[in-house]
Simulated scan of single mutants.
Amino acid sequence: MGEIAPGRAVLDAGEPMHEDVAVVIEDGEDIRELLAQVLTQGGFTVHTAADGPSGVELVRQHDPIVVTIDVNMPGMDGFETARQVRSLTTAYMVMITARGDEIDTLVGLQAGADDYVVKPFRPRELRARIEAMMRRPRALASTHPSAPRPPQAAPAPQRVPSAPGHAGAPLPDDEHETSMLEHRGLRLEPQARVVELDGQEIELTRSEFDILRMLLGSGRRVVSKLQLAGMLRGERGEPDHFLSEHDARAIEVHVANLRRKLGESPSEPRWIETVRGVGYRRTA
């Protein structure tokens, strides 16, 4: 299917994604209707707003599970709208914009977005990204430090790490990972979704947390950007698709944000090494 111009959507048939609430915040009427149609066909009850303040109020009223936000809105722009939405909810949040500059991606993800889609987009692509996000845990204990932490499961047997660099070694099964991960004063609790550095809790986004968990749980094995992108889309095993420029940029921004929050220098890494041209791995 080719790219869809506003107001000319031909949607894919299929089973609904989810029976829940979504909020669309978009000042363009054609795009707003297209997004509402995509989400409605996915099984959502959709509420729409044409500006940031109205959208934030809809989020406050309806507690959606998915929020889409246009970046380039008059008055309160999408980045400030995203910050206010994130202060209210752990909803899955997608930034949608006609601009694909790296700085926009950086600011959007720093504001708490889970993903970033550039116009013109394919309805199938948007649906696939929302489905992938919804396969990941919604709760983020570290985003709301005052909220009670979820009960922790009994510790699982520790994994036996594979030999460093062993190409056939499986990556950790994040969905069933229950053991605490710890490395150089950095402590990650998968079930509680909490990260602490030297005893102080670090506030991470959902994507930053999942990337850090995958890197810490993979030992010294290099994890490619393709594998990280596949993990964020909820794929299991080795991805069989190519790495798009959009996905590569998003992974680089997520890792840069993660390093900034940890206070780590890429040139003198304490936790995450860059393997040039391939991906990342945990430091020795």
Results as ranks from 00 to 15, higher is better:
Met1Asp: 01
Gly2Leu: 15
Pro6Gly: 07
Pro6Glu: 00
Ala9Thr: 11
Asp12Lys: 13
Pro16Val: 08
Met17Thr: 15
His18Val: 14
Glu19Val: 04
Val21Ser: 14
Arg32Trp: 04
Ala36Asn: 07
Gln41Trp: 04
Thr45Gly: 00
Val46Pro: 03
Asp51Arg: 11
Gln61Ser: 03
Phe79Arg: 12
Thr81Trp: 03
Ala82Asp: 05
Arg86Leu: 10
Arg86Asp: 02
Ser87Tyr: 00
Met93Leu: 15
Glu102Asp: 09
Glu102Gln: 12
Asp104Gly: 03
Leu106Met: 09
Asp114Leu: 09
Pro120Thr: 06
Arg122Leu: 09
Glu125Tyr: 02
Glu125Ala: 03
Ile130Tyr: 10
Arg136Asp: 00
Arg136Cys: 06
Ala139Arg: 10
Ser142Glu: 04
Pro145Met: 06
Pro151Asp: 01
Gln152Tyr: 00
Pro157Leu: 13
Arg159Lys: 11
Ser162His: 14
Pro164Ile: 04
His166Val: 05
Pro172Gln: 03
Asp173Trp: 09
Asp174Met: 15
Glu175Gln: 11
Gly185Pro: 14
Glu189His: 07
Ala192Arg: 15
Gly199Glu: 09
Ile202Ser: 02
Arg206Asp: 08
Ile211Ala: 08
Gly217Val: 04
Gly219Ala: 07
Gly219Glu: 04
Lys225Gln: 15
Gln227Met: 12
Leu228Thr: 06
Ala229His: 12
Asp240Asn: 14
Ile251Asp: 08
Lys261Tyr: 04
Ser265Ile: 10
Ser267Glu: 13
Glu268Gln: 15
Glu268His: 07
Arg270Cys: 11
Trp271Val: 02
Arg276Glu: 01
Gly277His: 09
Val278Ala: 13
Tyr280Thr: 01
Arg281His: 13
